[in-house]
Write a protein that binds this DNA or RNA. Sequence first.
RNA 1: GGCGACGUGGCCAAGUGGUAAGGCAGGGGCCUGCAAAGCCCUUAUUCGCGGGUUCGAAUCCCGCCGUCGCCUCCA
Length: 485
Amino acid sequence: MSITVYNTLIRKKVPFNTIEPGRVRMYVCGPTVYDHAHIGHGKLYISMDMILRYLRYTGLDVLYVQNITDVGHLLDSGEDRIMKGARREQTDPMQVVERYMRSYMDDMDALHNIRPDIMPRAAGHVPEQIAAVEQLIKNGNAYEVNGSVYFDVSSFPEYGKLSGRKIEELQEGTRLNTRAEKRRPEDFALWKRADPEHIMRWNSPWGEGFPGWHIECTAMAIKYLGANFDIHGGGLENVFPHNECEIAQSEALSGETFANFWLHAGSLTVSGVKMSKSLGNSVTIQDALNEYPAEVIRMFVLSSHYRSPIDYSKEAVDAAYKGWQRLIGPALSVQQILLTTQESDAAQSNFSSTIKQTRDDFKTAMDDDFNAPKAIACLFDFAKDVNGLLSEYPRPDDATLQSIAEVYNDLAGTVLGLLPANSTTSVNRDNELIEILVDLRKTARKQKDFATSDAIRDKLATIGVILEDGQSGTTWKTGFSNLSE
RNA sequence: GGCGACGUGGCCAAGUGGUAAGGCAGGGGCCUGCAAAGCCCUUAUUCGCGGGUUCGAAUCCCGCCGUCGCCUCCA
């Protein structure tokens, strides 16, 4: 195995090795479902999806778990996010959860993110969480006060090893008023007692309450992946406190190393600043998908390294849009040529070295901490080579075209998810109809009836069929068909 | 205040010791009835600034400036 990854835990790029040969167990923190997902979520999960896809592409058997948080998240105001959503929409909290969980799944599907193998929900794992808290108390890492249970940070000397924070510094830097009942301000909640008005509540050994935020990931990751697993992924802004607390709880609980590799994706800003409701600059995934095809959003995200922060702006995504069209244009052309023309006196092309080079370079780039932007650059080089080949006459032989299509399917499609979903579904009758129109246009052009020929070209363009006149006649392609403008 | 990330051409962005990938935009040319697409050429003696290490640094070290994120429950 030759993959290297940047491990946040040690702040270095290191060789990636799995606990079990050929198998990867991977956990990624999922969203709190109380509102529609925004493109910040989209960025994170596209990054993680790319990593998942590549690991699988290299032949690893990946078990991918991503949770859904549907309890207990508090706002700065002390308000429960889901209850806030419920009040806003005048519905039951669990109805809110269902609604936005489905919305989230729809968004992820639309972005072509592969679904996790297991998506456990926090509310469905309260017994596991209670058991974890009980064990932590038994181990001497947690204490109960007034029906709430807190993790005693001083009992875990390695606290801070992920984020590089020191407990002493935390005490100085605390910005919020902390609950007086905690022994130390940096202790964090494992279980919270429910105030009378709190709707989401469960019975526990400490009375009615609800689980703290971090404990769900500990309980569910351990349940489905074991106490020690390979990869834990998430957003960079969750390093502290969330991931740090997860490590403390989990390792205090089991005595084992929690995750071997911590992978964090850079955050997304909108026109230079973080999204927030109060600034009114929030862009949902649905908003973005109304503007651009999913592949373009993926192209935009994957154009910079997953650990880098990116800034969402019209200019940047428009540029990605153009780049994407250039990138996959040859793939669409190759498919159309294979579908609509015959290999007659096709030239025997010697393109295999280019294909091998492309696959090798792509792999080298991706092996180096999933360097998708560099991998995409390899595909741009490939696109240029393919365009050159396609401009020759007669057209390349079928075998060459097939192997080009395979490169696109594997690298741009399977690994990066950049090929249009419907690009391979060509209905024969549609093809024949288009051929008829192309023929009519050819006749019109011969008669110098350019009004007719241009009308045919323009009208086909409005339904996503692009005609291109070349030396060997007119070719056409679809696949950009869901594009507006 | 602390912790962390980042600062590469007009814009986006690779590059972690060996002499600046790629994309977008711009300019010139070829092709075209006109287009579109494509192809060729072209745009950073230079990598926030100042020192240092080295035969050699965008890459390592020190200092400074700037942007962003996090600092107890936001992916």
